[in-house]
């Protein structure tokens, strides 16, 4: 699969750009966090496209960003379950 470039992205409409990046991110995230892959991908897709392209080129940065997303998600879920009594 050829790498995703800024010019490839620029040729697509904004919503499609996120989908294109998501299609690249998802398998990488799925390999690390199978059950949370869709959610984590969605969270990361809120980052600027230019930064997402950098993450795709840097497995180490991507991994730390994924770990950050998991931590945020778990903290959020813990809060949710505490508040979800009414």
């Amino acid at each position: 699969q050829e790498p995703l470039t800024a010019s490839m992205l620029a040729a697509a409409p904004p919503q499609e750009q996120k989908q294109m990046i998501g299609e690249r991110l998802y398998p990488l995230i799925h390999a690390m966090h199978t059950s949370l892959a869709g959610k984590i991908t969605g969270m990361l897709l809120e980052i600027d496209n230019s930064e997402l392209l950098l993450l795709l080129e840097s497995p180490e940065s991507l991994r730390s960003k994924i770990e950050e997303a998991v931590a945020v998600l778990q903290a959020h879920q813990a809060t949710e379950s505490t508040h979800k009594s009414g």
Binding site: G22, G42, M43, L45, I47
Partner: peptide, 21 residues
């Protein structure tokens, strides 16, 4: 430090990635 990631983000649905069952 506070993370910029949003836990309420919409879940991504892959078009092409086939999940092994």
């Amino acid at each position: 430090r506070k993370s910029t990631l949003n836990p309420n983000a919409k879940e991504f649905n892959p078009r092409s990635f086939a999940q092994p069952k």
